[in-house]
């Protein structure tokens, strides 16, 4: 790069990027994760202290995250964020969601691999050499050594859940439109309806999981079908729950009057996240429950 460099002296104030002061919270979050993961590693191997460490790690994590975000909100209220900073946040959120998409895409790829490759291959082994000569494959399957189970059809709770989540996607957009035109009542009403729809979704999913475990015999141990089903829907349910926490935070801030048509990054980020969770559910509904 042989660019000629000159320093400009007539820089206006708005061209100054806000640089935060040193903060103890990032390193605290990492310390919390250290305790949490050491606890988890001990817990899954049946070492008694593991559960306590996990609980301590989670509490510390909660404390650090709440304080980290409080600081950011205070800065936002203090008016240090302008268009330049806001663009960083927006780009950051977009790329974070892209990384989440890859995470889910991996599990969908695993589903594809099982249905199209590993199960058909296992079924097409020469019976003289196969440890399970009677295995015929097909989908759903618990595998050659698995137990019997029933699946959840698409038309019951899953269809209701699809309608709930799609509606919540519409209501969060409606709330966002309200904010863009500084109609605070519409923002608040839209958020409340979205949270209610999302909460009912999570409750129905919990009911469905319980039903699967107790009555259908469908568990994590039900071969590749059960494993993939619970990993995908479970991970999605976790994301919906996190989305609900984010929406509730935004609702609380809206009630305090934090947002305006000009200052609306947090609302937008949460609504993007919510749409992402929505689209993942649509893929789940089609690829896991229906096809």
């Amino acid at each position: 790069m042989s660019a000629d460099i000159t320093m400009t002296s007539n820089v206006t104030g708005s061209q100054r990027y806000y640089l935060p002061q040193p903060s103890p919270y990032p390193v605290l979050v990492s310390a919390a994760l250290l305790v949490l993961f050491i606890g988890s590693g001990l817990r899954v191997n049946g070492v008694g202290a593991g559960s306590w460490l996990m609980a301590a790690g989670l509490l510390l994590l909660l404390y650090a995250v709440v304080h980290w975000f409080s600081g950011v909100i205070a800065e936002s209220r203090g008016g240090v964020y302008h268009r330049w900073e806001s663009r960083s946040f927006r780009l950051g959120m977009i790329w974070f969601i892209i990384s989440e998409i890859v995470l889910f895409a991996t599990f969908f790829a695993v589903l594809f691999y099982e249905r199209r490759i590993s199960v058909p291959w296992l079924a097409s082994l020469d019976p003289r050499f196969s440890p399970w000569p009677g295995f015929v494959g097909g989908w759903p399957t618990a595998g050659p050594a698995g137990h019997r189970f029933a699946t959840i059809g698409p038309l019951g709770i899953p269809l209701v859940n699809t309608i709930l989540l799609l509606s919540s996607g519409a209501t969060v957009t409606w709330a966002h439109w309200g904010l863009k035109e500084n109609r605070r009542q519409q923002l608040i009403a839209g958020l409340i309806v979205t949270i209610l729809l999302g909460a009912v979704f999570v409750l129905l999913q919990a009911y469905e999981f319980h039903h699967a475990y107790t009555e259908l015999g469908l568990t994590l141990g039900s071969g590749v079908y059960g494993a993939t089903f619970f990993m995908l829907t479970g991970l999605h349910g976790l994301h919906v729950t996190v989305g609900l926490v984010m929406l509730t935070t935004i609702l609380g801030r809206s009630l305090k009057g934090h947002f305006s048509a000009e200052h609306r990054f947090a609302v937008e980020a949460v609504s993007w996240y919510w749409h992402f969770v929505d689209v993942v559910w649509l893929c789940l509904f089609v690829l896991v429950y229906s096809v």
Binding site: Y113, T141, G143, A145, G221, A227, M231
Partner: peptide
């Protein structure tokens, strides 16, 4: 997936459950 195969009874990488170590 490896963690759940080890501790939570899944069969992502085990042919007995229709999975595949090659996955």
């Amino acid at each position: 997936m490896l963690l759940t195969d080890r501790h939570f009874g899944t069969h992502f990488f085990s042919a007995a459950g229709g999975g595949d170590p090659v996955l």
